[in-house]
């Protein structure tokens, strides 16, 4: 990927997304652009359309109107698998990890690798050691130092470590975009800091991240650009350099209008 294409064509783009639920309008024509190597935060009050927007991007909802483009190509998502195949990985608030399975098994859950030769093709044997090694490599490449042994059951991990497992899985396997839905909502101060560091590490490796968060100081600490949703529309896109958190809240609540 060259720098010129990365800046001209967004990795992920949404144009005029509309999603209604009966009489309730979730999205009233929302645009979004995500470029390579940036953290785009999405903030907004409850009911502003944050989750609906994310669910359209991750394939959980199909928008009524509008277009989603991955690297400039239009795509259509009907289920989460479609988005995943297009390279969009979502870390849900519930994390979607299997507590009783170990870290390596969780990283490869749903895309296990088999041994070469007869053992893999006839006996369908898993390449357990290979997956462990690749999991370790993946975790090291991401600079995650809180996960040591890949054979540890996820249920024995702390909240921050579980989040790290979910993020590592999302960032692995050639994904192009990682969406994090309220990744620190259930975490303590120290663990939140670890997750934010992880977000920065992902960005520094060129992986664009969409971060949904309620935590204003956190958003201003880690985001490159901030998209503010209000009443199912994009109210503004600001940066931490041009606006203060107070102004962001004002835009969110409608007290301030950006044109």
């Amino acid at each position: 990927m060259t720098t010129s294409t990365a800046t001209s064509t967004p990795i992920l783009e949404a144009r005029g997304l509309v999603k209604t639920f009966g009489h309730v309008v979730g999205l009233a024509g929302v645009d979004l652009e995500l470029h390579a190597g940036e953290v785009l935060a999405i903030i907004g009050d409850n009911g502003a359309g944050k989750s609906t927007l994310i669910k359209c991007l991750s394939g959980a909802y199909t928008p009524d109107a509008g277009q989603i483009l991955v690297e400039g190509r239009p795509v259509e998502f009907h289920r989460p698998d479609d988005a995943r195949r297009a390279g969009i990985e979502t870390v849900y608030q519930t994390l979607a990890v299997s507590p009783a399975l170990d870290i390596a098994s969780n990283l490869f859950l749903g895309r296990e690798q088999r041994l070469p030769g007869v053992r893999g093709s006839v006996f369908r044997m898993l390449d357990k050691k290979g997956m462990r090694d690749r999991a370790k490599q993946q975790v090291e490449d991401l600079g995650i130092s809180t996960l040591q042994s890949m054979t540890q059951a996820v249920e024995n991990l702390s909240g921050g470590q579980r989040q790290a497992v979910a993020v590592a899985r999302a960032a692995a396997f050639g994904s192009k975009v990682v969406i994090l839905d309220e990744p620190t909502a259930a975490l303590g101060v120290r663990e939140s800091a670890q997750v934010l560091q992880l977000v920065r590490d992902l960005r520094d490796q060129g992986m664009p991240v969409i971060l949904i968060s309620h935590d204003m100081p956190q958003v201003f600490e880690v985001a490159d650009r901030i998209q503010i949703q209000r009443l199912g529309r994009r109210a503004a896109v600001i940066t931490p350099q041009t606006h203060t958190p107070q102004e962001a809240v004002a835009i969110m609540t409608g007290a301030m209008v950006v044109t």
Partner: peptide
């Protein structure tokens, strides 16, 4: 273990 997690993992 957790059928919803399994579903979101693509199983």
């Amino acid at each position: 273990d957790d059928s919803e997690s399994a579903r979101l993992s693509g199983i």
